[in-house]
């Protein structure tokens, strides 16, 4: 009796694609800048998942090493992002993307 059907790499890839889609939708639609940054992290982690899956399929360690690099880069990105959010919050007292309208045509 196979209640838990075998989970294949394809399932992981599908999960990664779904997560990536959720992240993309989040970045493009949310107004709160923190949620946007979180969605960005979600996108990067979806990419990590697919790298790991491919590393598993190929039996190759490169894919796993890449993930470490991506995590490091994502940390740097989040760090810079939050620093800019703090600077903006000091000036605007708000973190809503729609209020950043200093620059426009």
């Amino acid at each position: 009796m196979d209640i838990l059907f075998p989970i294949t790499p394809t399932h992981y890839l599908a999960l990664s694609a779904i997560l990536f889609g959720i992240g993309t939708a989040g970045v493009l639609s949310r107004k709160n800048i923190f949620v946007s940054l979180m969605s960005l992290e979600l996108m990067l982690n979806a990419v990590n998942l697919s790298f790991i899956t491919f590393a598993r399929i190929h039996g190759d360690l490169t894919g796993q090493v890449i993930v470490l690099f991506v995590v490091a880069v994502a940390a740097a990105e989040a760090c810079v992002g939050l620093a800019i959010v703090i600077a903006l919050f000091r000036l605007k007292e708000n973190v809503n993307v729609d209020l950043f309208n200093e620059l426009k045509d």
């Binding site: 970045v27 946007s36 990105e77 992002g81 800019i84 950043f100 200093e102 620059l103």
Partner: peptide, 11 residues
């Protein structure tokens, strides 16, 4: 405007 530019660029 500089902060806003940085934020938009980052996102």
């Amino acid at each position: 405007s500089s902060n806003e530019a940085g934020m938009k660029y980052l996102l």
